[in-house]
Every structure is written in C-alpha cells, then in structure tokens.
Write a protein that binds this DNA or RNA. Structure first.
Lengths: 137, 137
DNA sequence: GTAATCCCTACTAAATCGATAGGATTAATA
DNA sequence: TATTAATCCTATCGATTTAGTAGGGATTAC
C-alpha cells in the first residue's frame, strides 16, 4: 500500500506543477486546496526539498517551487524519495538491495523470480511518467 | 513491501507443489527446509486452507496439500489471500475498493491515474503466473 | 493409548505510520 | 527597526500493523 506521505507528496507536486508562474507556493495554500494536514505536508515538502526535487524560499512570500521543469521530474525519483524502494522485496531492489536472511540462493527462489517481473513492470510505468504527465490531466 | 507472511506463504506453496505425490506435507518439514518459524508458518497455512487454496489432513501422517493442480493455482488469488489488495491505493482496487477521504473526484486525481497503470501491469504478471510457474524453476 | 499432527485463540514486542507541538530562523515590508 | 509571514527543525505521541510466541484442544494412525 502507498503511504499517505507518498500520496500527499504526489498531490502537492501536481498542485505546484499546475500553477502558472514561478512564484513559490505556500504550504498552507496546498494543504487547504488538497485537504492535507498542514504540518504533515510541511514535513513531506521538506524531504522533497532535501532530496533536490523542490527548492524553497523562506520568509514572507516564501514557499516551495520546482527546481526543474515538470517534464524533467521522473516518477522513479519521486517514488524512491517518498516511498522508498520500488521493488516489493529487498533482494530484488536495484537501489536498496539486501540479501534475504532465509534464502540460501536467490537464483533458486521462486519469490525472487516473480518479484523481478513485478518490479520491471512497475519500473516501466514510473520511468515513462513524469510530473508533467500527472499534472496534464 | 511484501510482508513476510506472503513471502513465507509463497515459498511454502512452492515447496508443496514441487513434492512428488499427493501425500500431505507436514508444517515442520516445510519450516525446516525453508527456514521459516514453524508456528508462524502454521498460521499462514491455516489461512491458505481457509481460503480454499490448500487442503489439510489432521493427525499422524497429516499435513497440507494442494486442492488443485498447481497449474490451476493463480497468483492473483494467492496474493489477494496473503497480501490483500494488489492495488497500491484502495481507490484503484478491483476487489477491495474504497473511496479516498481527501479526494473530491477521483477522475481528476493524478495519483489515481498513475496507480491504475501500476495496478494493471502488476495484475498482468499475476494473472499470467501460476504456482506451477513458480515451482518450475 | 500414545504419539504426531493440525486447529484455534490469545498475547506481545517492536516497528511504522500519520500526524501534532513548539519554537528557531529567515525575509519582505511598513 | 519592528512586525509579520513564511520555512526549518527536532521531538513526541497514539494507533495500527507486523512478526512472531504460547499453550492447549481436537483428530488420526498405529
């Protein structure tokens, strides 16, 4: 299941991308418009900024803005920042690989093989989708 | 992330499917062979039995067995029993649909659209895979 | 009758999730 | 310079889920 964090983060990014102009967008504005708890959203946008997806401006008239054009913001990156690994098991993750405790040889593991297929198909979707696609709708 | 429950369940089903003959397989045998905590595995096989995937025989020489040929055991069914919804958000789930609290209209929701694509691709994998495929490897 | 096996309920420790609280810092502007 | 509006940062918290464990009851083969 997708965490609320990821869901809220995607909605907020979409909201920012849809805004005309480059002026920073206030957390409170997004929170109100998208029905997201403001303090929770604050922490989410903070992690997006720390990861480089968003930039921010402090003080009056401050807020968050995209650091690249929305066509450059890939879902693979956003999802990894917000949700973590895209794979359903660590032993199949490209960016967060970990060996399973119980598995003597993952080449012989039936779960491994199945989850590689799921991962590849999910990656295909995320790789071919940008924030611009989300906000186009 | 895939729960341990699902992972163990898939491994146990694979183990049973690979066994020659129709004799019931003991929980303790599977647990030992697959490095799964026995009491935990017991509860997992119980839910698989209650959902109709496995049958069981009590008493001495008892154990669990497949109720259908492994080519008939679809991953969609197994995954739904063990892991729950295949979709990453309830508003996109075929079998466990629920409306989002925060979303006024899911037809306008960017997350919804993205997650439908992920769901469809994941379903494609699970629909085209049976337990026989897992145990063939 | 005894040993082996599944069946069932209840419990628990640890981790994660979804938030909330409160103040520190920074910037615009009057 | 004082005020106000915003982000920044750390800490905390309650609820839920996860990953088991415990203990006994019921059933069957021999």
């Amino acid at each position: 299941m997708l965490s609320k964090k990821t869901k809220y983060g995607l909605k907020a990014l979409t909201y920012i991308a849809r805004k005309k102009g480059d002026a920073p967008v206030r957390v409170s504005e997004i929170a109100e418009s998208e029905n997201i708890p403001p303090k929770f959203l604050e922490s989410i946008l903070l992690t997006l900024r720390k990861s480089g997806v968003l930039g921010s401006k402090k003080g009056k008239h401050g807020g968050y803005y995209l650091r690249q054009d929305s066509t450059e913001v890939k879902m693979t990156d956003v999802m990894r920042v917000l949700e973590g690994p895209i794979a359903m098991v660590p032993c199949v993750s490209l960016n967060f690989y970990e060996k399973c405790d119980d598995c003597p040889d993952e080449n012989l593991c039936s779960v491994n093989k199945l989850m590689i297929q799921v991962r590849d198909n999910t990656l295909k979707v995320f790789r071919s989708t940008t924030l611009a696609d989300l906000s186009a709708t």
